[in-house]
Design a binder for these strands. Structure first.
Lengths: 259, 259
DNA sequence: CGGAGCGTTGAACGACCTCAAAAGGTGTGG
DNA sequence: CCACACCTTTTGAGGTCGTTCAACGCTCCG
């Protein structure tokens, strides 16, 4: 069966309605309860590196709480933080390129579920809930990665910074008592810079500028307070996309919570 | 069951042996033959835009031959080519972020298999071959994306250019009669620039420099000849990783070929 | 012929990087 | 509790690489 017709989409930027289908594609699917029984729960500590292999086997990691970071280090000391994994995210060790100095490490402590890929894929083939969870987690993460790609490839320093802050705020932020959103900034300047493809010095300067313009303040190290999230959103062209992706989820995702 | 111990990996850059497991993680899995019966084969034409939705439903695309391109366009005309899809690659419309002006378009004509996501996922749940194919394709593509991320985030202009050329050479190149590798360069300068997070002018200049240094020549528009691929590889820090990822596959992947 | 689109090239500018120095934080041992 | 070493962060001054803008050539097509 070969069909060439009716394939074209004239609109270079399809309206949102074309993309949103029966179900909202990015509606989070809860981590299946069963998964806990098949994998080991690991308490992660800040800064810790998590081995990608598990007894020499490929592994799967499901973030229950906290945040992980995938880093790649290429020759000449070129380091790139490829992606961040938040609660509900799934990572398979084969997602990391070999021969590229890939490391998975903890930026925010929490609980991670770990199991062999073989065990996970077997479970997925028998349990539709797990299959659904996996598909939707991977889809959401890929979409998120696309935005990140655009930010690193096309945004200027301030836009990238704003994008990261908005991402953190949307994912891990909670309303503060004095209005605004408060959230952890668990990454060091260097990690943030490597995530955004920037120099750490430049990033620090940009951060200072944001702080002095009142968009942001630091109640303490590793935390940030954004008085008005809308002001921050104005600074990044990716605001709408980020909201669409993870606007709704504010709470940590536990295996027993259906969001 | 909670275990905190034996989780750390001391080595920031784990040796290749840690990553390569029972099976080579990136060994290509052939496109299942069954897939052809469940989806429509679409002949794609250069420049054509492929609708992400299929009768209002989410869709899956499997590249049999040719090359596709996923582009994101954010406000202010910021355009980023997020990834390229080569034969054997799989794309699901939910991988594209909504509200981000995502388009899937054809850069190299060929055959694409298209079906509803619902149909595909149903097939995957009953046919292990399809499940395996999907998992491995997604893993390979994620790994590839990680390299791309590092290139855009950290490489200078020449390194990015060399990375793209090497990627194209490894994926679609064939030995030329006069020695060296010959391959299609189906992307326009602007598309290449948007893929690499560069300005088209800058890219053109860099290309000219590579050409005048004899690393590369253009037998005709949209084709490139690299006399010595090793020389090109020396220019990019991602050479080893790219080789590891898709060093072996030179031929187009057909649904009837087991590579 | 005229126009649109793509690719190339040059000159000038500016955003980000590099390098260096100082300030601030954290952890350890006395 | 302090002293010390060590690391991260900040900030400045200067340099660089990529961008911007504009002009020109080429090809395709009406």
């Amino acid at each position: 069966m070969v069909m060439t017709a009716s394939l074209k989409a004239q609109d270079p930027i399809p309206p949102a309605s074309t993309i949103r289908m029966e179900k909202r594609p990015f509606a989070p699917v809860a981590i299946p309860t069963d998964l806990g029984a098949h994998g080991a729960t690991v308490n992660t500590r800040r800064g810790e590196t998590i081995a990608l292999a598990f007894d020499g086997n490929e592994a799967v990691f499901v973030v229950r709480s906290g945040t992980l970071m995938l880093t790649v280090t290429l020759p000449h000391g070129l380091r790139q933080v490829v992606s961040l994994f938040y609660p509900g995210d799934l990572f398979r060790s084969a997602f990391a390129p070999s021969d590229a100095g890939a490391t998975l490490s903890v930026v925010r402590p929490g609980e991670v579920l770990r199991m062999r890929w073989s065990a996970f894929s077997e479970l997925a083939s028998s349990d539709p809930e797990t299959t659904d969870y996996m598909s939707s987690a991977i889809a959401r993460q890929n979409a998120s990665q696309a935005i990140h790609m655009a930010a690193v490839g096309r945004f200027d320093c301030q836009q990238r910074m704003a994008t990261l802050l908005l991402e953190l705020a949307l994912r891990t932020g909670s309303p503060s008592s004095c209005g605004g959103l408060i959230f952890d900034v668990p990454l060091s300047r260097r990690d943030m810079a490597d995530y955004l493809g920037l120099n750490a010095d430049t990033l620090s300067r940009t951060m200072s500028r944001l702080r002095s313009s009142g968009l942001l303040s630091h109640p303490d190290r590793h935390r940030a307070l954004v008085p008005d999230i809308a002001d921050l959103a104005k600074l990044t062209p990716a605001a709408r996309s980020l909201m669409a992706l993870h606007g709704q989820s504010t709470a940590e995702m536990s295996p027993f919570t259906t969001v």
